[in-house]
Design a protein around this nucleic acid. Structure first.
Ligand SMILES: [Zn+2]
Ligand SMILES: [Zn+2]
Ligand SMILES: [Zn+2]
Ligand SMILES: [Zn+2]
Lengths: 142, 142
DNA sequence: CTCTCAATTGAGACTAATTCTCAACTAGAG
DNA sequence: CTCTAGTTGAGAATTAGTCTCAATTGAGAG
């Protein structure tokens, strides 16, 4: 999993004449070890544990590259900071977000995806990406 | 339309022991005259034309109240600032957003709404609100 | 291995949307 | 009219994210 992502990332960087630095390598690895959805701030803090000299600017810059290479995906759950999650090698999914406890539930729903495409077609619109978020109360917070 | 909203707003304020001030009245009226999706900044600028003493803080505070009373709905189309649109008296809809020209297309899709509810039920989750945004290229930007 | 240089980095300044503070002001009940 | 809790404007504060720039480094050429 990580190996594949490293390959994807180095190919991506090479294609853009960018360099695979030790900082970029570290941040990618740390992002892969992080579970679920993590913020830039959390990634910075975890990355510093592996290499205390890694800076905020580099984490943000690297996140942009990981997003562009589709290794990570950016999500905005509406709490003022963006979060990221692994995308490469995973199926697309959407989210249920509990507005009381913050719990995130992921789901895959092919029929919805198909209807979204049909709706876009109706407007002669080409979807590049989409975001479906259902906010409310989870089972425990109901 | 505006009359109904004024009634909703004054009832809402009364129920919360808040006052219907001239600033709040002005901002509500200006929001109703504004077409489509507008930012807090745009609403401030329009409100100042009606009453030059209205401040940024009051616009933000009033927007929060209009949102809470469900007269307006807040949207985040991902360009760094939130936008608002009339909600009272309108049907729920979701959005197609062109990532080249910024055009917003609204659509209503009952089957998708039903599938969302079914998906939530599957997780014993109570939806309070949701957001479905399809980003891509519109007809003209294709 | 060394040279070279464009790409990269860390530190911290900066940006911009939104929120907060507080003293002066006012809606509206009585 | 009076009283007072709620409201206001001005600008400071907050904060996620971006930018600047001098020093550093990856990696291809020799
Ligand atoms: Zn989806
Ligand atoms: Zn997810
Ligand atoms: Zn919807
Ligand atoms: Zn809309």
């Amino acid at each position: 999993m990580l190996k594949e992502a490293e390959k994807t990332f180095s190919d991506f960087l090479e294609k853009k004449d960018l360099k695979l630095t030790s900082q970029r390598r570290t941040i990618l690895r740390v992002a892969f070890e992080a579970e679920g959805h993590f913020s830039a701030e959390a990634l910075l803090s975890l990355s510093k544990k592996a290499d205390s000299t890694i800076s905020k600017a580099t984490v943000y810059r690297t996140l942009a590259l990981l997003k562009e290479s589709q290794i990570l995906e950016e999500q905005d759950f509406g709490d003022g900071k963006k979060v990221y999650e692994r995308a490469q090698g995973r199926k697309h999914h959407d989210h249920l977000i509990c507005i009381r406890c913050g719990k995130i539930i992921e789901f895959e729903n092919e029929p919805i995806e198909r209807l979204q495409n049909a709706e876009a077609q109706k407007h002669r619109f080409k979807i590049v990406y989409h975001s479906l978020k259902l906010f409310g109360f989870c089972n425990s917070c109901g």
